[in-house]
């Protein structure tokens, strides 16, 4: 089940606070990890933000003084996007690698 995939991935990534799965073709938040503190409104805003920052690319990172938000577009289904909100000391390489695998599993109908 896709929900479990996000929860398991969030557990694997140290410092991960939120994982969400967006469908940019419908501009909808389709999934989120069960432990996220983000409201649905906040996730909707992030979905719009993903559309802006991923307009021409496959990955984007936004950093503040306290955390990163990473948007990762699926290699296989370009409208599928994973959003990860994480701590500044999170291993970004983990997010990219494990996140792409997760996107493929969700896209494959897990």
């Amino acid at each position: 089940m896709a929900q479990n995939l996000l929860d398991q991935l969030c557990d694997k990534i140290a410092g991960c606070e939120t994982l969400a799965f967006f469908d940019l073709s419908t501009r909808m938040v389709l999934l989120k990890n069960s432990g996220t503190p983000q409201s649905q409104d906040a996730l909707n805003t992030m979905c719009k933000e993903a559309e802006v920052v991923l307009e021409d690319g496959a990955v984007s990172l936004l950093g503040s003084d306290t955390q990163f938000t990473i948007y990762l577009r699926s290699d296989k289904v370009p409208t599928d996007v994973l959003c990860c909100v994480c701590a500044l000391d999170t291993d970004v390489e983990d997010v990219l690698t494990l996140g792409q695998t997760c996107l493929e599993e969700i896209g494959g109908g897990a």
Partner: peptide
């Protein structure tokens, strides 16, 4: 007044 970084691909 806040620090920020944005990294974009494709540009």
């Amino acid at each position: 007044g806040k620090n920020q970084v944005i990294v974009l691909s494709g540009h």
